[in-house]
Nucleic acid binder design. Structure first.
Lengths: 173, 173
DNA sequence: GAGAATGTTTCAGAGTCAGAATGATTCTTC
DNA sequence: GAAGAATCATTCTGACTCTGAAACATTCTC
């Protein structure tokens, strides 16, 4: 059903043990690798991947409340406070009292936040190039399409990272 | 160079902001999703993904020292102690004083550890089926091959997860 | 045989996160 | 229109985990 066994499978067969390395493991390993490397480059802007997700969400739909975004991200509101604090102190995000509901804070990107997004996009493209640079253009397209289908089929909200609950740059360099 | 823009890109273009969601992000999101789901199923055995990586490494090359494996995993020795403690208490791994060097502990899988590996393999196949079940057999092969090439090209040691430094089941259910 | 180096373990410090409690505002109900 | 329940944001505490340094036993080097 799964075609050829992978290298690991052959190795392990020698040991008489069952193989546990499948596509899920490869995805997880590459995903961690990708997140770590992107996060490391991001550290130059004093940001972490969750910050980026947040900036993106705010830029895409300005004016929403913290809780609305916290819900979307599956993140406790108390964590959202700290992330927004960071971005506000960095001058990238602005909290405005919602005149309709003065309990809530509406979130907006500042000019500096918008400019940060273009830098982030540059960093992302740079890393992307290094990550998939060894594939042909066709292969990149194939990979991208397969991954997008899996994201959809797995019910992952597009653009919302399931691991935002706890992601650090994991400095190593 | 990168063919068609993805859905996210179109969304974002409307907002006038640059897009930051590339293949790297998709990999990271799917990888976290995969790790979480596998980890959740693994919790039934009171194990975490790093435990599994360790069991596998020991089964594949029995008799090595803790430090040898810690080096391979890029993990501090003090962390290795705790993981081995868990597995030893669970009766899946045995520490034997190395007669050649009585400072070192040689690590071996017990029968219980070997049996755990077959259960783990079952869990892994189950999850794999759910993860890529929506792809055709050909597509699974394509995906697997592309991922394996990226792993190799990125210099990731096969079977060694770059994120083993800190992985929890991240209970949620 | 003395001192440096190595494998393992323990321990203390730092960091982070989730969830409960607090305060302000709005909604519901009478 | 007033009292109590619900909601948004924030603060704070407890729990957890990881890292790096110190400690201990053993081996290597000279």
């Amino acid at each position: 059903m799964a075609g050829e066994p992978a290298d690991g499978a052959r190795d392990n067969r020698r040991s008489g043990l069952p193989e546990v390395i499948g596509t899920g493991f490869l995805l997880s390993a590459l995903g961690a690798h990708s997140a770590m490397n992107f996060g490391r480059r991001l550290a130059a802007l004093d940001l972490t991947p969750p910050h980026v997700g947040l900036l993106r969400a705010i830029g895409l739909t300005p004016g929403r409340s913290q809780q609305a975004i916290a819900d979307q991200f599956g993140m406790p509101p108390s964590r959202m406070v700290a992330l927004i604090d960071d971005l506000e102190h960095a001058g990238m995000v602005e909290r405005r009292r919602d005149p309709r509901d003065r309990r809530a804070h509406s979130l907006f990107l500042t000019d500096k936040g918008a400019k940060a997004m273009t830098k982030i996009a540059d960093i992302g493209r740079e890393w992307e190039e290094e990550l998939v640079g060894s594939l042909t253009s066709d292969e990149r397209g194939q990979l991208r399409e397969l991954l997008e289908r899996l994201v959809a089929d797995q019910g992952i909200t597009p653009g919302v990272h399931p691991g935002y609950r706890a992601m650090k740059p994991d400095a190593d360099s």
